[in-house]
Design a protein around this nucleic acid. Structure first.
Lengths: 208, 208
DNA sequence: CTTGGAAAAGGAAAATAGTCCTGCTATGCA
DNA sequence: TGCATAGCAGGACTATTTTCCTTTTCCAAG
């Protein structure tokens, strides 16, 4: 289902998100500034609805650097949610996939959409192996938000200076050290020096 | 980003999903059967791309009874994922929200989209209270798939004949009884008679 | 092989969206 | 206050899409 008001709301929200007015968005997209004018959303005599063309939508999306799925979410009205890239957990440890701040770099990953994830730099990891069982099993996918400030009891993904990437539950945190409680009882808890932690990201979703 | 090939792929997949050809879909939508013809996707001289109008897309979606977000998912190419309704866990126990087979009834819930959920009748629940801690905390959201066959070790939501709705881990299953392992150690495990279980749905995603 | 139906190609007319233009209003700046 | 700029309304014109028409291709049933 797609209604006339939905599609125009999508356009308005797209403009708002980009920090522009509807006419500003149109200009940015290389269209006539009046294309998205409220006065062009119904016919002159007021009897017929006017719809934007898909080509105009496509140009506006290119200008706003937003995906079609995200636009659909804006139009449908439901708030929140973002497309996040998905990579394998094993790869997460290797060089080249993350910058120093814990954000994934590069592209070409499968994109999946998640509700309630507003972190611009959120991404998904796929679990390999059973070292984190029973909480996370082989093949499970977790979505992590690097910008969220994790609190005690939250589950987090941590990358250390030595290049290790691991999922743990956050324990006691002091100025000098961070306690990481193992999710698998067979593995010991660890206490890392704050300086040894390259980045730490909170896990916000997990497949079961 | 929305490309010419994407939007037409979306139309083709929409038709396929509905069990129709592109021209059949157009007819069903009350449009001219040639509207979605491959020959109308580029100009006659082959130099210009032709795009379907938003209004035609809207009519096709109405005919196929599909939401705009789902269409965007089809167009973007990423497979899987569905819109699922969200309700509070407390309401889940009360009458009127679920039919006898465990499917949510009624509408008006907030819709959220999930990847990897192909179950037509999947829905999301919001956890209230800490009776399922530490695995599920107050405010967490879980996505359940009623059609998925749960196996031992899976986390499930169960509704009993007495109207109770609870989230547990599936234990030993026999012909007569089902063992449910409590997620919170403070609560006892339970063994239910198979006849007392109205429905059981597997938990596929959980916010952390 | 023939035949009926659906799908699609191709082209001209009709409908609709974008563009270009003018004018009005609100806002920010000197 | 005066001025420049952005946003929007309204109207005429242009470009594109849909519709309507005929013809061709494809496929399955007889």
């Amino acid at each position: 289902m797609l209604t006339h008001s939905q599609i125009w709301r999508g356009v308005d929200r797209l403009a708002e998100r980009t920090g522009l007015s509807p006419s500003g968005l149109a200009r940015q997209a290389g269209l006539d500034p009046t294309t998205f004018n409220p006065s062009k959303r119904i016919s002159a005599d007021g009897t017929k609805l006017r719809w934007p063309s898909t080509e105009s939508i496509a140009k506006a999306l290119a200008a706003a650097r937003l995906g079609f799925e995200d636009f659909a979410a804006l139009a449908a009205g439901a708030a929140g949610g973002r497309s996040v890239p998905l990579i394998g957990f094993a790869q997460a440890g290797s060089h080249g996939y993350f910058d120093d701040a814990g954000f994934p770099v590069g592209a070409g990953w499968e994109e999946v959409r998640f509700p309630g994830v507003d972190d611009e730099d959120a991404y998904a990891l796929e679990i390999a192996g059973d070292s984190m069982a029973p909480v996370y099993r082989d093949g499970d996918r977790i979505v992590v938000a690097p910008h969220a400030a994790p609190r005690r009891g939250d589950r987090v993904v941590v990358k250390t200076r030595s290049g290790e990437v691991m999922a743990k539950e956050l324990g006691r945190v002091t100025n000098q050290s961070v306690e990481l409680v193992s999710l698998n009882p067979a593995y010991d808890n660890r206490v890392l020096d704050t300086a040894d932690i390259v980045w730490m990201a909170r896990i916000v979703w997990a497949s079961q």
